[in-house]
Amino acid sequence: MVKIVIDARQASLGEGMQVKRILPFRKQRMVGPFIFMDHGGPVPLRPDIKKSLDVLPHPHIGLSTVSYLFSGKLVHRDSLGVKQVIKPGEVNWMTAGSGISHSERFEDPGVLAENSLELIQTWVALPEKFEESAPSFTNYQPEKLPVFTDKGVWMRLIAGDAYGLGNDVSTHSPLFYLHVKLEKDAHFGLPEKHSERGIYIAKGKLEIAGITYSAGQMLVFDPKVDPVITAKETADLMILGGEPLGERYIWWNFVSSRKERIEQAKEDWKQGRILLPPTDDEEFIPLPENPFKPKSTPPPEPLS
């Protein structure tokens, strides 16, 4: 029923910001088109560490980033000239395509008034025909994201379609992504349509088939099963999946179906061919010195 359990690993994004890294995982590189997932915070936004949390301009290719906040605010700037204050409950969908750079900072007065930050960031790999598409950024306000409630269950559809819900968030392949809150003893089930499905437990505990799972774990399920999920305590979940895209390579912030495209992206960043945000172009993250080749994300092995 539960195919694999992924325990989040600690990773550092700089001074003051430790994150739980869920994807990629050596035994489950992707879930549907989702190739990366970080859970950051909650971090107290003390004045002495707010500056150190800034993420300087850095590049992406071949993917869409999806930023979703539980609490706090941050300022997004990108090489398209977009400046957006990102707030809880919104969906901020940036498609890198052929190449984009962006930063995330905490200098806005409204941001500085916040007391904590907690967010989920995922990367969605693009189908081959969209890997070199024009970059874009779209902010979707909470009122554009359908919410469903039932006894002990609250859910917001972030993107895709599931449980009969849909919205206008533009995606490039079949997928689903939801924020779900469960009250203690509430029952819940997975969407049946999609072939790859996972649950990340951001808070709380779940019981499935007599086994208890805790915060910081992602559960990836066998296809065509319909598990009964019970909240052992109040829980916050991120439920995601979709259809697999095939092999992908990932190196630093670059994703591609071709190794040589990763190498080109490295050189493009080193040579300044990926532009910096026009209002945040005085500093940037240099290409890391990493001797390892891009890691591939092969499709899952067939179930026996």
Rank of each mutant, 00 (worst) to 15 (best):
M30C: 13
M238I: 15
H187V: 04
L287W: 15
L165N: 04
R197Y: 09
A209K: 01
E192G: 15
S296W: 02
G81Q: 11
V5R: 12
R156G: 02
D7I: 04
K266W: 03
D7P: 05
D78I: 07
V85I: 15
L240C: 01
P57I: 12
D150K: 12
L237R: 09
T171Q: 00
K295Q: 13
S79H: 01
R261D: 15
P127Q: 05
M155S: 09
P142C: 08
I86L: 14
H58S: 06
N115V: 12
V225K: 09
L145G: 09
P142R: 07
K87A: 14
N253F: 00
G62H: 02
M30T: 15
R21G: 05
N115W: 06
Q264I: 12
G62D: 07
G32C: 02
G40I: 15
D281A: 13
A202L: 08
I61S: 01
H76V: 14
F292M: 13
H58Q: 06
V147P: 09
P146Y: 03
I208W: 06
R261I: 09
V43K: 06
I61Q: 00
V31M: 04
G16E: 01
P127Y: 04
I100S: 07
K50N: 09
P59R: 08
V75I: 14
Q121D: 13
D38H: 12
I120G: 01
E247G: 03
D161V: 02
L23E: 04
I61H: 00
K203R: 14
G246Q: 05
I35K: 04
P278S: 03
S296H: 02
T149E: 15
M1S: 10
L276K: 07
